[in-house]
Write a protein that binds this DNA or RNA. Structure first.
Lengths: 199, 199, 199, 199
DNA sequence: TATGAATGAGATTTCATTCAT
DNA sequence: CATGAATGAAATCTCATTCAT
């Protein structure tokens, strides 16, 4: 009964996130989600075309929020390095404070079938764009490494963030995700190998 | 009918990989896999406890092979940096030459439910160990960056490799994965930011 | 928005006929009929008890009209043979000029469930009465064949008309229904077999 | 539990006919049919693609039988008039001795949706062919009335038979259908109007 | 070992109907 | 009279698994 009546759309999305996080993707029946939202099962279909549509909408809504927070975190930053640092930090902050959401995005929704996955892939492009812009700016200014495709740099950055959050969820949230922001930035920025000066 | 008769265990695993790659995880019915393997559906249950067990066995078998190839690639290397380079290259080589397998590990099997995923997570530790040993050696020798937990370095390395292969599969194999080995090593080793000497 | 405002009862019936003809019986949802009539779904229930009631009312209304037209066509006829001829012609004229109605009565409404069908059967008795009266008169006067129950004569007449109109609808209205009136009368009147005089 | 095990296909069709006749078309759930056939619900889907397919198969099977009986009844008849007489009689005999089947074909299956109806229409052509052949022969030999399209003669014959059987079912089988064969033939053959010799 | 016919649990989705406004 | 958002019952179909042969 988490619903604020009058905003059933959001209530159903909230309920979906809670139920998926709690029971896992495959046990998240529409009837359970409706119950959690405090509405009848049929009501879900007044707001969403079908179950895949509900899941895609949930992902879109949350991703939009995450992207919004990331872009907001970039406000006032001018240096690409600083932007990279902030984007990394914000990613860990945004998900580190929303365990349900992290579990849903990192673990559960990956169990969705191909149709949903493809739509999710499309949506992810909006998130990649945030990183890509920083990379492009960094390479243009000569601060970021050149001679390597921006896409591969993005794979490094996104892959690292994604893997880190997944590990955090799988650990049962047993470490401090936000505390990893700075070391992760250092790693991504300076690399794994400690080249000595002049080396 | 991919089966070598007399080795039905392997035939069924081969068939599972083919069917999952071709039809996707959720359409990979036991009956279809059995047909591809040239056996009856019931026979599958003589070799595997149930469907999740079959999938976990498939993953274990293939991962064992990948780990074996990676360890073999390390033969004769003594420097941690060289080992890192070889492990990266071998990962791209091993999957770059097995599109079916790549599709299965990067895309399809991630749709498995939580029970299978947890067992897969356990198995992944064997793979992480290969990386972790290199990291430990690198940090001990002072070549790799210190002051950052080895686990996070592993997240960077594994996350980057994983994301790259996934992007390759999703692209429809439209770029040369092996060609990315060297740039990826450079990125991981030297970092994204181009510090000038003495910087 | 086919409705003449102020006469919602008729507007809803008109809308039902249009929607059933256009979308078929099973896709004719109350909400769709209401929309076509320019009223809210709930309003339908101010004029009709439930959906079966609406359908029965639609049929009753239209049948009443058809019977009225048939009886009107009999005006001025005195001979049973002429009456039979007129009734046949009028049936083809009445439905031949109302394709929507023909599709609804011959095809779509036959998909209604048993409850509705039984009520429709009751209503049909009013229509059978028109034929039965002609038959009774014809037999009494000695013009119509005797020794055969009037009911069976009615089955012949009604069955032929019904089957003809149904065939016309199923053909996509691809022949001239009215043109069949005279041959159909001849057939019904003289029979299939061409007895030679004195035969 | 009507099933002879080993012939589940026929058992399921038999069960479908029984259940539809007893409970009506819309209450004929697959689970009930399966129960009546003495099999599990899932078993039905080993023999039929889906529910519409089951219904079409039922109709096809029974129609095939009816057509077979009609053609058999024509054996040894040479005169078109005699053939017409036999076809009419056989229709009433075939359905008059199978009340369940008559209820299913005349009442219940007409409630099927458009997809099933269209397939049924196709199948009916096989039955019309039996009549059409007799008509063609009769017209060619000059015995049957000419100058009227064979199709319309068929509408008369089929419409009359169909309407008669339907009336019989709706009456609760309260009259002797077979006894109507001869009068019905007379009606169809000689017509409704009693032309006096030389008239 | 091997077969494959049979099982049966379980969830999405539709839409007639209601009722608070 | 009129609205239309919300309800909730109900049935098809899939497919992993079993077991008699």
């Amino acid at each position: 009964m988490a619903a604020k009546s009058g905003d059933k759309y959001a209530a159903i999305l909230d309920a979906a996130q809670v139920v998926i996080a709690r029971q896992g993707y495959h046990s998240a029946q529409i009837s359970r989600i409706a119950q959690e939202a405090g509405v009848a099962a049929g009501t879900v279909y007044l707001y969403f075309k079908n179950k895949p549509d509900l899941l895609v909408c949930l992902f879109r809504e949350r991703l939009k929020m995450l992207i919004g927070e990331s872009r907001a975190a970039l406000d006032g930053a001018t240096e690409p390095a600083e932007k990279l640092r902030r984007v990394i930090r914000q990613h860990f902050v945004s998900l580190g404070r929303r365990r349900d959401l992290a579990a849903v995005t990192q673990i559960e929704m990956r169990q969705a079938d191909t149709g949903v996955q493809q739509q999710i892939s499309e949506l992810m492009k909006g998130w990649f764009l945030v990183i890509d812009e920083i990379i492009a700016e960094g390479q243009a200014s000569g601060l970021f490494i050149r001679g390597i495709p921006g896409k591969q740099i993005r794979n490094l950055i996104y892959g690292t963030l994604d893997q880190t959050v997944t590990a955090w969820v799988l650990s049962g949230f047993h470490f401090d995700l936000e505390a990893l922001a700075e070391p992760t930035f250092t790693l991504i920025a300076r690399g794994v190998i400690h080249y000595t000066e002049g080396g």
